[in-house]
Simulated assay, not measured.
Amino acid sequence: MKTIEIAEAREALGQYAGHGENLPLVVTDRGRPVAALLAVPNGDLETVSLSTNPAFVALIERSRERQSREGGVSSQEMRRRLKNAPNQGIKRDKQ
């Protein structure tokens, strides 16, 4: 991990991101962390957006807690069920 004081950050963001060799890069303001630049291997915009959304993270945590308390269907079992489910697509009349 590398740190840089915000007052000393003179390069363009792309220069700091580079190819990820020096990531994560923590930006500080008078020694206090205020931002971080991280590599996102195998990530996409939707995943990054959702994983940094506090409301979404809270929803997932509540769901996990309820699953732990009350039980339910595992993700593996749900995938199996969906794979074996009959096609419920919309049937269109031929015109």
Rank of each mutant, 00 (worst) to 15 (best):
R64H: 09
Q15S: 11
K94N: 04
R10H: 06
P54H: 09
P33F: 09
E8H: 09
I4P: 02
N87M: 06
A39E: 07
I6Q: 07
L45H: 04
R32W: 05
G43R: 04
N42D: 05
G18T: 13
S75Y: 14
R80Q: 15
L23A: 06
P54V: 13
I6L: 08
A85T: 15
R64W: 03
R69H: 03
V57W: 00
P24L: 08
R81N: 02
L37H: 03
Q95T: 08
K94S: 06
Q76T: 08
N84H: 11
E70D: 13
V73K: 15
E46M: 00
P86K: 12
S51L: 10
P86R: 06
N87C: 00
I90P: 00
G43W: 03
Q95S: 06
K83Y: 03
R62V: 00
A58D: 03
E70W: 14
E11A: 13
G71W: 15
S49T: 15
T28G: 02
S63L: 09
R92L: 12
N84E: 14
S63P: 00
R81C: 04
K2W: 05
T52C: 04
A55S: 04
A39S: 12
K2I: 07
Q15P: 04
V26S: 04
Q67W: 14
L59C: 05
K83T: 09
L50W: 06
V73D: 08
S51F: 06
N87P: 01
L25C: 04
L50K: 00
S75W: 10
G89A: 07
Q88H: 12
V57I: 10
G43C: 03
D29Y: 12
R79F: 07
L37E: 02
N42S: 02
G14T: 14
S49P: 01
A58V: 13
Q67A: 13
G43E: 02
P41L: 11
K91H: 14
S63I: 07
N22V: 15
V27I: 12
L37A: 05
H19C: 14
I60T: 09
K2H: 05
L82Q: 05
E8G: 01
V57M: 03
